[in-house]
Write a protein that binds this DNA or RNA. Structure first.
Lengths: 360, 360
DNA sequence: TTTCAACACGAAAACGTTTTCGCTAAGAAT
DNA sequence: ATTCTTAGCGAAAACGTTTTCGTGTTGAAA
């Protein structure tokens, strides 16, 4: 077991100085061709690679991006990570992942761990607890320390930074419009509590779509699920709730659900109640995950393009990092630097599958 | 925007030496109570936190684990990551993620990027292409450089390191036994090509279970899917293949599939052919993912406990890291160090759901 | 008064780089 | 013969820590 070789060791072996080795390896023409050859050969032989940590310390940048998300076992989030990793790698960056597990405290701890030199910038999506508390000081603190942040999906106006979001509002409008066009007369909405911004926006889209068709949104047709306790492990509760909802509102012939799980559960319940899909009830979900694709019947969804979100976020962050790098030279007073932040909206797209009727 | 404060700055402000500041902050009793108080107060005020990179360079360890997996948009892998992150965090480590995307080259590039000081050790699962090529030099190279590796799930005998695997063989045996107990007479197997070790092992389990019941495995009842091209995007091909398979073998009354996708697709096809589940055909899958849970009917599966795998892997790696740390002191000749590697087997468990009959 | 321990702190090395600057020798220009 | 370039290399600083060792001051012991 031989440890990685360093410049110092090469220098000692070849009886030259460290500087000479460093220069020779970067093909500096300060060094004679002879010495350069010799050093490069030796370095290759011993598989020399510069130590990243030393480089990071010297350059005061790590070429690493910190990702902070609420949950990783989740199709949408892992898709976003894939997008981030893709462009990060292409542009010479690594990716370090932290999970908040929807907890405010873990979010802070994770940020502080990473903000102390480990990374050059953050890409993150806010945890539910943080959204509830509406306490965003940790984000602003790290931004003030000169570390850029890009938020995606679960973003918030109180923090000044680049953002990448899906067009929740218009996505919902499209979905509900589709149901209306498909002759649904009583369209139900299954959504989350309002503090999750995406839930709120999707709900607004639902209402807007109805109203634009002169339909008054019936509050009874809106089911708000409290998912503060994790639904995944209380599936029966979810089913029960939806079943009650269906029974009370017998006239429902269309369902728009703000996520995949609600949608497939709704389908399940509907079938249990003897309703057939899409003949009696048509269903559209939000988020294009595995469930939608492989459910029976397969689910028509509003696709979020998670990977694109990740790619965009990574590009935004890295652009800002290289900008900060070159900008360093020209002088700026602190407030003079133009701090207009970008908000990228990723358009949604309806993917038609079997849970809605096909008209053509 | 004020950059993070350093020891040097504190020292200058308070007109003491850097060493004094460092000692005061670590409560060294070399420093008088007065000065300690003053320094700590100042540090707190300016929110001083030691720079991780500098610490890494000094201590020659990063407190970071590198994860290298073929794909992140995959329930099993993301579950493993969650497990790793859980114990890594608990034990003071960060987690950096690389994706090989099933490519040999990307696997190597990623390893080299991370191996140059960025991390203290690897947790990885081998890419399909690497398994095909059977070229494992990059793993052995990094191990030889003194960087420990823990492999999980897709492991290989040619590399000497700790391993965490699921009991694929026994898992399959259990599953097929269950089908036999449930009175299936013609049990089909839907599996992958043999070069993926887990596919091979699960196939062997299938055969073994049959033979232990004096049943001769019928080669016609084994369908090997070539998933070298990604199946997710060629779903129809998969369905077609399975449909042909079912039509040719009309007698099938039980299906064991080595992954979730094959299982739910089999169910879909079966229903399409007018067969009801579990009455006409019972189905068991491998991997406990979202699909199994939410499919209709929900799928009986062999659960892999991905999170437990991740936790075990992380513990193995960190144990070895701290061992190497303390062991450093006593002298060892290189070959003298005890290098017996551990192979942890995570037991599988059958989760019964609606796709098999209930006997009680 | 001299000696000595204890106290409180600073200097410097080390981790592995890159880069600026300075130095020496050799050859060219004056 | 003297000055000037230039080629080729080394010394040292810097990034931010921790830690070892040294040093000066003070009060007590001799």
């Amino acid at each position: 077991m031989k440890r990685k070789i360093t410049l110092k060791q090469i220098a000692r072996e070849l009886d030259v100085s460290i500087s000479t080795v460093s220069k020779a390896l970067s093909n500096s023409k300060e060094i004679s061709e002879d010495t350069t050859q010799k050093i490069q050969a030796f370095a290759k032989l011993y598989n020399y690679k510069p130590n990243n940590i030393a480089l990071s310390l010297k350059n005061r940048k790590t070429k690493t991006i910190g990702i902070l998300i609420p949950e990783i076992v989740h199709h949408f989030f892992s898709t976003v990570i894939r997008g981030i990793e893709l462009v990060a790698n292409r542009r010479g960056y690594n990716v370090i992942v932290g999970l908040s597990n929807e907890s405010f405290t873990k979010e802070i701890i994770n940020m502080e761990m990473l903000a102390n030199g480990s990374i050059d910038g953050f890409i993150l999506s806010i945890s539910k607890e943080t959204l509830l508390k509406q306490d965003y000081h940790h984000f602003n603190a790290t931004i003030n320390q000169g570390m850029p942040i890009v938020m995606f999906d679960r973003v918030v106006n109180e923090v000044d930074c680049d953002k990448v979001i899906v067009d929740d509002f218009n996505g919902s409008v499209k979905a509900v419009n589709k149901l209306i066009e498909n002759n649904c007369k009583n369209i139900a909405l299954i959504t989350t509590m309002d503090y999750v911004s995406v839930g709120r926006l999707r709900t607004q889209g639902y209402i807007e779509a109805l109203e634009s068709h002169k339909i008054i949104a019936d509050p009874n047709l809106i089911l708000k699920i409290d998912d503060s306790l994790d639904v995944e492990n209380h599936l029966e509760d979810l089913e029960l709730e939806i079943e009650q909802f269906f029974k009370i509102n017998g006239s429902i012939d269309g369902v728009f659900a703000v996520n995949e799980l609600y949608a497939v559960t709704a389908m399940k319940v509907a079938r249990k109640l003897g309703l057939s899909i899409p003949d009696n009830i048509q269903v559209i979900g939000f988020t294009d995950g595995v469930l939608s694709k492989h459910a029976t019947p397969s689910l028509t969804t509003v696709s979020q393009h998670g990977q694109k979100i990740g790619e965009q976020a990574a590009n935004l962050l890295i652009d800002r990092l290289v900008a900060a790098d070159t900008e360093d030279d020209q002088y700026f007073t602190n407030d003079e630097r133009k701090s207009d932040f970008i908000k990228v909206v990723i358009e949604t797209e309806i993917i038609e599958r079997e849970s809605t009727k096909q008209f053509r």
